[in-house]
Design a protein around this nucleic acid. Structure first.
Lengths: 248, 248
DNA sequence: CCGATGGTGTCACCTCGCTGACAGTCCCCG
DNA sequence: CGGGGACTGTCAGCGAGGTGACACCATCGG
């Protein structure tokens, strides 16, 4: 059925530069559906309780979790400590489309849809996580109705959030789209304004826009003091101004 | 939080022609998330069994189900017979964004997200349906783990399908976008090729595109014998050709 | 049966963003 | 501590699609 494009990225591994951007785009959007923060299906207390039941997995920096090299291992991953990098092969280079942090839950939605994730995951530093094989996941849902109920809300909220972000992009001027994207994707950072740690190429792909066009707007924002453009990173300075531009 | 735009349509009832299109657009996309066919959370057998437990509701043609006049009645609606029209007020006219058919399930996702639907529903002909108030819905999920489990898959699939359709639109030439939209939204009709029963204005809004631009491409399709353009309806003639254009 | 309402078909003008290319800069790996 | 691969910054030319307006035609309620 039509859902198949969720994993088109992995299947169509051609290196053509046109499809490469499509691959990055799909993966980047799917990566926004990770269970995180208030949208995570499991509360920290749940995770602690489950750690006793389900075997934790320890990984050294650089070890792969799923995708490509591991032969695409289905199941749900729950990060307890460390960071995991989500990347997609595009041509002969790797583009990072997201990073998992402690508390994040990944893999449930592809499991529910019966599809593979369009990206590969690799431990950045030492990582501790829980891995639920599909059978474990089913048992978890069957034995803990309260968790199942929260998981339902979590899935709905995560998909709806991404859905809504996409709708908000349709048919708006590029500056408004970009401001919205930056605000949505900003990492809540220690020091005030957030940071978006993605290369301009990925940002452009997410908006379905050419990189030069995006760069122009970005530098424009920088000239007006709204953001600070760095290497593979954009720091948001004037949140209010960006919000104004978003809804212009 | 940002999910609020799901219902922005109803709240911001300004009649400005710019926002009117945004309203139509949002509503039309949300309407694609109705539980239908293989994505419905309930099998026909489930519905029959529940009919004994939960009070059915009968409505005459023209009666409102939810939205506007009923003061936005939350809950889940399950259509057993008849047709229900989903429409949104845009300026001082009503635009239909979708139609519910027997077996369709509507209202669960807004309930999970805690938001109102952005459109109003009205019975087109005599309608029989089941209405679950929020408490009924919770009880249904709590007492029938198997149904809860299927509901989880259903929600994931419906949102992912809409999500995926949106991604497929980004940055593609208009003809490809339109072909994709027509193929996705076509009503499986008795006689061979499907029909899309939406005014061009709604189609244009869904693509975030101006109506003249859409009309141009549509007439182009008609000239090539791919579709037949009617009043508030487009009949698909050459499915294969449209599929070719979609992935051009 | 008729008028109001809204849907469709089309145009000329103009803006926005794409194409494709090239130079400079930053990182990481060896 | 280099060197190659990515990433950023920028440009000129061009084409797709937006704007706003207008004429004509279905539909429906009275």
């Amino acid at each position: 059925m039509e859902l198949s494009r969720w994993s088109e990225a992995l299947r169509t591994a051609r290196a053509g530069s046109v499809t490469a951007d499509a691959t990055v785009r799909d993966a980047a959007w799917v990566a926004r559906c990770v269970g995180r923060g208030t949208n995570a299906p499991l509360a920290p207390a749940d995770v602690a309780a489950l750690a006793a039941t389900l075997q934790p997995v320890d990984l050294a920096a650089g070890a792969p979790l799923f995708g490509a090299s591991t032969g695409s291992d289905p199941g749900v991953w729950i990060i307890r400590s460390g960071h995991v990098e989500l990347s997609v092969a595009s041509g002969r280079n790797r583009v990072v489309v997201g990073v998992l942090r402690p508390g994040d839950v990944e893999g449930d939605i592809p499991l529910l849809l019966g599809l593979a994730l369009p990206y590969a995951a690799r431990a950045v530093d030492a990582v501790t996580c829980l891995h639920l094989r599909p059978a474990d996941f089913e048992e978890l849902l069957a034995r803990h109705p309260a968790i199942a109920r929260r998981w339902l809300s979590s899935v709905a909220q995560r998909l709806a959030a991404s859905h809504e972000r996409l709708i908000a992009l349709l048919g708006r001027p590029l500056p408004a789209q970009l401001a919205g994207l930056l605000l949505d994707e900003a990492d809540g950072d220690p020091d005030g304004g957030g940071v978006v740690r993605l290369p301009q190429r990925t940002l452009a792909a997410m908006l379905g826009v050419a990189r030069p066009s995006l760069n122009k707007i970005l530098k424009d924002f920088e000239r007006h003091g709204h953001v600070e453009v760095g290497y593979s990173a954009v720091r948001l300075i004037d949140i209010a101004a960006l919000q104004r531009i978003r809804s212009a």
